[in-house]
Amino acid sequence: MSEANASATRITPGNALRPEDIALLDTKPADAVAQYALWLGDDALILAQRLGWWISRAPELEEDVALANIALDQIGHARSFLTYAGRAWDRTEDDLAYFRREPEFRSVHLVEQPNGDFARTIARQFVVALYQWELYSRLVHSSDPTLAAIAAKAVKEVDYHRDHSIQWVLRLGQGTEESRRRMVAGLSLTWPYVEELFADHPLVDELGDAGVRPSSLREPFDAAVQAVLAEAELEVPQVPGSVGGGRLGRHSEHLGYILAELQVLAREYPGASW
């Protein structure tokens, strides 16, 4: 194993896996693994882009710091997954982030949803963090060592995101009448996009032990959600699920605007280095 290759599996603090290490890997992921890495990378990227808006607008300075931290972690995960995916097609993380069009993105509709008020952001964060934690805590056993290494770093960080969102669901759910009303509204606006997270696509069959079957995460996710909402004296919203389609490149109307902002500068100066 080359020095660069060895570094991709280093997961100890201070020696954490970096996208720069992944870019130097000798091995290329199989196409299915690369596609799967796009799913996870795009989710993290679009979520980070949404969360980044809050920095300088949060209800408390402590929350500016917390939301920035979560966004930063997500950008880190996105960079690793996209760098790895790009190895399959000789494209860099930035080629993939800045020079793909909407239908080429694989993010789920949930992460594309608007921030809304703080409660809506927390509702989205609650769902994403619980889902990502279930996902990454299984992906650490992936037969693909790079995916496993990325997940091993990510799961530790997402554990904090989970704690952060749970603490806020409890506070907003049991705080004041207004916060409860807003939390209930935030959850109902978010819930139509939950189902898509657990949909199995044909790609999953091609992955074998490299990936995690989305449908297998539903039960533990529901149990975790139930426990928190019960403590917060809130209910799981009974709203119809939306069709989704993000994994196939069929996105919400929001993604176009998100990408317009994300990509504008890079596309204004194609070929430039920053």
Binding site: A58, P59, E63, D117, F118, L172, G175, T176, E178, S179
Partner: peptide, 8 residues
């Protein structure tokens, strides 16, 4: 905008 959050 954050007042209700701090109050909660």
């Amino acid at each position: 905008d954050g007042a209700w959050v701090r109050e909660a």
